[in-house]
Design a protein around this nucleic acid. Structure first.
Length: 485
RNA sequence: GUCCCCGUCGUCUAGCCAGGCCUAGGACACCGGCCUUUCACGCCGGCGACGCGGGUUCGAAUCCCGCCGGGGACGCCA
């Protein structure tokens, strides 16, 4: 039987990195085995969900390069792929459970349940539903209905049964049915079925062979296994991925800073780096190669190599990886990605030639960690009327020779005929040094300051050639006036 | 509270299932040096971990037990 996995997020309006990793691992598993990757939207909690939120999921997945074979937008043989559109299907299976006598109506109110839980906790007992409504007579039900109460449907959990399953990541797990918290709700009082039920129906009907999801679902698994059995479905294989933790070792959440895929995208992480980094959170390739393309990840991915210990989400390594990817990215693509950041920073790029801009990106990218660093490092190429920084001013005023270097260089350049290539620039600087008897830092730094107003930056000859004679002259005039004044 | 899961450098991890090859390997970060007439890159080097205690064994990071620590789940959320 061929492998079928699914990613089943609920559209909350943002895609958490934990979800992103779950999606990735499902995708890698499917592609590695030549199977199908299904996208299903879990929106039974209707009030919370919107179309916009579904779009967020699509965008995150597409950005990461994870393409799905079946889904709400694509269709497929086991649709619909949105739970809110599958209500008739669920109804059918709920009827089945009713016929088998495996469910019953419960009329307890929210307040009653809360009260019960509170008392149990106070007594030091684990909170659980006691089965109070399990044996209501028809008359009692009628009376409760007359009070205006609307029942939920609860599933009868067997008294004392050990439920076992083999988790592909964690190994054998067993739990006694007594620990499940009592008979659980499968249909809300408003008629809407609940996660633990629909997930089973959907996974079974969609022929999902492997359920790969976060570790926080481990405790749901026994309940779901009970439902698979009650409905006469074959249980799939389970693989529970270790949690992703914040720096304080608690479950990663918004208070830990950036946790949504969108934020990483906006900061200027490349999807390749982000995906690569996520893959290494809880998984490690046998050959130890860490920089891996999606194809290479697919090739190497094995669910058996997934670590069972949780991983702390620390973006330090992601930063490094992003640099690695930035440096090897196709320059035209990188330029395309960088442009929005430059425009957002207020640079008018219309005056610049595309090829020239690519050259600038090429020499600047060595300095970027994230794409949003681009304006900072590229400014030196884009803006001629800069300020001279304080430390640079200080450096010049320390020694009168230093200002003279700029002045002489300016004069020589003005008189210079021809194109200002790297070679020509070096030659001119050398002449200045010779005539003034200045070398090293005392020679180069004033020229750097004259050209950029700063004490550090890209290599000067490269900068000079890219700017061209006219712009260099203008810059020297600019900084000279500021240094003298 | 109860149950479940987990515990190797600061972080991601290799090794653990099939005990000796582990004086515990790699990567990131950090520190130092080299390179560079700046910064960064790059190169070289350094720092740095088997949670604790018992067993089993000639030998344990690896197997067993206990403890401690961390996390998760206990919803008419998913």
């Amino acid at each position: 039987m061929s492998v079928r996995v699914r990613f089943a997020p609920s559209p909350t309006g943002f895609m958490h990195v934990g979800n992103a990793r779950t999606a990735l691992f499902n995708y890698l598993f499917a592609r590695h085995h030549g199977g199908d990757f299904v996208l299903r939207i879990e929106d039974t909690d209707t009030e919370r969900h919107s179309e916009e939120a579904v779009k967020v999921i699509y965008e995150a997945l597409r950005w990461m390069g994870l393409d799905w074979d079946e889904g709400p937008d694509k269709g497929g043989p086991y649709g619909p792929y949105r739970q809110s559109e599958r209500l008739d299907i669920y109804r059918e299976f709920i009827e089945k459970l009713k016929e088998k006598g495996l469910v019953y109506e419960c009329y307890c109110t929210q307040q009653e349940l809360d009260q019960m839980r509170k008392e149990q906790l106070e007594r030091g007992e684990p909170p659980r539903y006691t089965g109070k409504c399990r044996h209501l007579t028809e008359e009692e039900k009628a009376r409760l209905r007359a009070e205006g109460r609307k029942p939920v449907l609860r599933f009868k959990v067997p008294e004392d049964r050990v439920i076992r399953f083999k988790d592909l990541v964690k190994g054998e797990i067993e739990i006694n049915s007594r620990q499940l918290g009592g008979d659980f709700v499968i249909v809300r009082s408003n008629g809407m079925p609940v996660y633990n039920f629909v997930v089973v129906v959907d996974d079974a009907l969609m022929k999902i062979t492997h359920v790969i999801r976060g570790e926080d679902h481990i405790s749901n698994t026994p309940k779901q296994i009970l439902l698979y059995e009650a409905l006469g479905f074959e249980t799939p294989q389970f693989a529970h991925l270790p949690m992703i933790l914040g720096p304080d070792r608690s479950k990663l959440s918004k208070r830990h800073g950036s946790t949504s895929v969108k934020e990483f995208r906006e900061k200027g992480y490349l999807p390749e780096a982000f995906t690569n980094f996520l893959a290494l959170l809880g998984w490690y390739p046998k050959d130890g190669k860490e920089i891996l393309s999606l194809e290479e990840l697919i090739e190497r991915f094995d669910i058996k190599d997934v670590n069972s210990a949780p991983a702390v989400f620390d973006t330090t390594k992601l930063n490094w990886m992003n640099q690695v990817y930035i440096r090897s990215y196709p320059i035209d693509k990188l330029t395309e990605l960088v442009i929005p950041y430059l425009e957002k920073a207020g640079f008018d790029l219309s005056a610049f030639d595309r090829k020239w801009l690519e050259r600038v990106v090429e020499v600047s990218r060595e300095y970027f960690t994230v794409l949003s660093d681009a304006p900072h490092y590229m400014e030196v190429f884009l803006k001629d009327d800069f300020e001279v920084e304080e430390d640079a001013k200080g450096f010049i005023s320390e020694n009168p020779d230093r200002l003279r270097v700029i002045e002489l260089f300016y004069g020589k350049l003005k008189a210079f005929e021809g194109e200002l290539t790297e070679e020509a620039f070096k030659k001119l600087v050398k002449e200045v040094g010779k005539e003034l008897g200045v070398k090293g830092k005392n020679l180069f730094m004033p020229i750097r300051i004259g050209l950029t107003g700063k004490m550090s930056g890209v290599e000067l000859p490269v900068l000079a050639e890219l700017l061209g004679k006219e712009r260099v002259l203008r810059r020297l005039e600019n900084s000279l006036s500021k240094l003298r004044g």
